[in-house]
Simulated assay, not measured.
Amino acid sequence: MNSSTIAVASAHPAPTVVRGDSTDTIHQARETTRAFADSLSPAPDPASADALVLVVSELATNALRHGGGRYTLELRARPDAVTAAVSDPSPTAPRERTPDLHGGTGGFGWHMVRRLTSELAITAGPGSGKTIHASLPR
């Protein structure tokens, strides 16, 4: 008799948390986000999963560069959306700036995050910092 184990993905898995304090952790945040999206049942379509990974990458990178040098990422799933919450120690909200098309100094990230998300909110905390909540449809 043959026995096999079947892994059952969850529609609403427990939140997944990643903490980072260096650019090396951005890769881990992307990989964890991809695995989280793939574990959902039903899984988001490939374009939505790619958008989620890009949003997480941008938010975590911005937290490192502009938000105090560290971040906490929390991923959650709802029936209709997936939410990435990125916290950092800076109370300063992201600001939109004109993208630098020639000098390579950036300015594209916040524009992308705003365009790719269906819901976007900034809340105070933890501590004196902020959390950016970005939701994308499933």
Rank of each mutant, 00 (worst) to 15 (best):
G107C: 08
V113A: 09
T131H: 04
R114L: 00
T117C: 14
P44W: 00
L64H: 07
P137I: 15
A84I: 08
H111R: 00
T5S: 13
L54N: 11
V18D: 05
S3T: 15
P89Y: 07
A51I: 11
D80W: 09
E74I: 15
V55I: 06
V8N: 12
S22T: 04
T98C: 08
L101I: 06
T16M: 09
D80S: 09
S118D: 11
T5A: 15
A60R: 07
L101E: 08
A134V: 12
A84K: 04
S128M: 14
A60Q: 08
G109Q: 13
A11M: 13
P89T: 12
A81F: 07
L59P: 00
P137S: 13
T25S: 02
S4H: 11
A11K: 08
I6D: 15
G104W: 07
T123H: 03
R97M: 07
H27V: 03
S87L: 10
T83L: 07
A81N: 06
L40H: 04
D24V: 06
H12F: 11
V55E: 01
P79Q: 13
H133Q: 04
T98R: 10
P44F: 02
E96A: 15
V86T: 14
H66C: 12
N2A: 14
H12C: 08
L54M: 14
V8T: 15
D45T: 01
H12Y: 04
T117N: 05
S41C: 00
P89G: 10
T33Y: 03
T61H: 10
H111P: 08
T123F: 03
T23G: 00
V17Y: 02
G109D: 15
H12T: 05
G20E: 01
A49R: 01
A60Y: 06
P137Y: 09
F36T: 08
S39I: 01
R114G: 02
P126H: 07
I132S: 03
L120D: 04
P137C: 14
K130D: 00
L120K: 07
M112N: 02
G69F: 08
Q28N: 00
A37W: 01
T105C: 04
P137M: 14
V17H: 00
H12Q: 05
P42Q: 01
D100V: 13
S41A: 00
P13F: 08
H111V: 13
R138T: 10
A77M: 13
R70G: 10
V8Q: 12
G129H: 11
I6W: 14
D21E: 03
W110A: 10
E31F: 04
